[in-house]
Every structure is written in structure tokens, then in C-alpha cells.
């Protein structure tokens, strides 16, 4: 018998082992749901898959009686546009701040202490201020996402910029490169794949801020909806919404990883 640290499962066993926890959770859920619905057909805590399917059908494929919109898709579109805009702003700002503070000592001493302090402010504590300053419209929600993850991305890019060997910067200078040329041709292309990595890592936080903002002040959106139907204990709506959010998050992560591999093959293959 080999030591446990040396046991590597075959592909088939690996696949089975990785599916197993999902299957078990599903089985436990179905069993528990059956037991509760047996005792009380009106139980709302653990709806059956038929009930969830009906709710999803109602939300996604029938127009709302009140507004005439397909709520599920409306919510998805609103949430994604807020998240997308917020992340786009955060990524652009984070890249700019990170590259300039990482590469230019003069900018670094001016901006880094501020950046450190700002990154320590809990973004959710700023939410009331954002509502007061920007009102309850789209802007305050986008701003929360952007403000929440910009410092994280900026500090990550700053560190990555400093990790690029000084030899490369010296080499570029001996080839006659000016500061903007070094920033654009040596640093920027090497930092773009790191930016994608940073965005992938901060998307989780992005969703958190988005749902929090939507829960507090909104009229649509995935976060708004699950907090709204919580009042009626509509687990049949909340559960598919949570699953959908998870699926979207997973899809973005995979898509970003794919884009990074396609655009920056040297990075994916370990060319640092």
C-alpha cells in the first residue's frame, strides 16, 4: 500500500469522486424535501423540483402580470450590466493606478499610502454615502462595485509590475526606450494577463457588492429579486436564482481564463 500522499486516482475515479459531493447534496435535498412535503404539502422551505420548475417557468417564460416583462431575464440583464460596468471601471482604474505606481517611483510615493488607506475602508460602509451622493439610481450600485474592487486590482497590478525583473527595464533603456515606450511595450502587455487574473479573483467580491446594493435599494436585479421574495419565503424562486448566479459566475471565470489563454499564449505556457 502506497502512502496516502502518493495515491493519485485514475481519470475515471477522479471524475466520479468530483461528481460525488454534488450527487449527495442533491439526494439529501430531494429526500428532505419529500419528507417535509409529505408532512405538509404547503411547506415552503424545501420546494420540490416540480415547484422550482414551475416558479422558474413563471419567472422566465411568462410576462409579469404587473409590468409585462420577463422578470428573470430583466433581472439578469440589469444585474449583469451593473456588474459589467462596475468591473470594467475597476479594471481600467486598477490597471492605470497599478501600472503607474508600480513603475514610476514618483507616482508611487504620492499615491501608494492613499491607496493602502482606501483599500482598508470596508466598501459596504460607504454604501450609505454612495446613496446620498449618487442617489438611488444605477450609478450608486455601479459605483459600489467599482469602489469595492478597484483597490484590490490596483494593488495586485502594482505588485505584479514590481515583480517584472528590473533587467528587462534596463535592457529596454539600453535599446533606447523612453518611459512611455517602456510602459506600453514592456510593462502593459505583461500586466494584461495579470489583470485578467485579478479580475477573475475579484469577481466574487463584485457579486457580493452588487447583491448587497440591489438588496437595499433597487427595483430590479437578481439580488433585488431574491431579497424581495424572501418576504414570502419563496424558496422556489430563491434557489434557482442562487443557482443561476453561481452558473453565471462560473461561466465568466471560464470565459476569462479562455480569453487569457488565447490572447497571451506565452503567459499560459509559463513564459511568466
Amino acid at each position: 500500500m502506497k502512502r496516502l500522499v502518493n495515491l493519485t486516482p485514475s481519470p475515471v475515479i477522479s471524475a466520479m469522486l468530483s461528481i460525488l459531493p454534488f450527487v449527495m447534496i442533491l439526494l439529501v435535498y430531494v429526500a428532505a424535501s419529500d419528507v417535509r412535503l409529505e408532512a405538509n404539502p404547503n411547506d415552503k422551505l424545501l420546494p420540490s423540483f416540480t415547484q422550482i420548475g414551475d416558479a422558474l417557468q413563471r419567472m422566465a417564460f411568462e410576462p409579469s402580470k404587473r409590468t409585462g416583462e420577463y422578470l428573470f431575464w430583466q433581472d439578469t440583464a440589469s444585474s449583469l450590466s451593473r456588474l459589467g460596468l462596475g468591473v470594467l471601471i475597476a479594471a481600467s482604474l486598477g490597471l492605470l493606478i497599478g501600472i503607474f505606481t508600480g513603475a514610476l517611483p514618483l507616482v508611487n510615493v504620492g499615491v501608494s499610502p492613499l491607496l493602502t488607506v482606501v483599500s482598508l475602508v470596508p466598501p459596504l460602509a460607504l454604501l450609505p454615502i454612495l446613496f446620498i451622493v449618487f442617489g438611488l439610481g444605477e450609478l450608486s450600485k455601479v459605483m459600489l462595485v467599482a469602489i469595492g474592487i478597484t483597490p484590490v486590482i490596483a494593488r495586485d497590478i502594482q505588485r505584479r509590475a514590481r515583480e517584472i525583473p528590473a533587467e528587462q527595464l534596463v535592457k529596454a533603456q539600453t535599446l533606447g526606450a523612453s518611459t512611455p515606450q517602456i510602459l506600453i511595450r514592456v510593462l502593459l502587455p505583461q500586466l494584461l494577463p495579470k489583470l485578467i487574473d485579478a479580475v477573475r479573483l475579484s469577481l466574487g467580491a463584485g457579486w457580493l457588492f452588487l447583491i448587497a446594493a440591489e438588496a437595499i435599494a433597487s427595483t430590479d436585479g437578481l439580488g433585488y429579486r431574491i431579497f424581495l421574495v424572501r418576504r414570502y419565503m419563496s424558496m422556489d424562486v430563491i434557489l434557482p436564482y442562487v443557482a443561476w448566479i453561481t452558473l453565471l459566475a462560473f461561466f465568466f471565470d471560464v470565459a476569462l481564463a479562455w480569453i487569457s489563454r488565447k490572447l497571451f499564449p506565452w503567459h499560459a505556457q509559463g513564459g511568466s
Binding site: Q168, K171, A172, L175, G176, A177, S178, P180, Q181, I182, I184, R185, V186, P189, Q190, F264, W266, H267, G271, S272
Partner: peptide
């Protein structure tokens, strides 16, 4: 430069000699 091919590495050396902003 790890993010450039062999040819690009050398062409970049040529580009750095010019005044341009982007390189």
C-alpha cells in the same frame, strides 16, 4: 522580453530607437 516572439524582441529594439510614444 518574455511576451514577444524572437522576431518581435528584435523588432522592438528597432522601434525603441524611434521617437514614437508607443514603441
Amino acid at each position: 522580453f518574455p511576451h514577444m516572439t524572437v522576431l518581435e524582441n528584435v523588432v522592438a529594439a528597432k522601434a525603441f530607437q524611434r521617437r514614437g510614444i508607443t514603441g
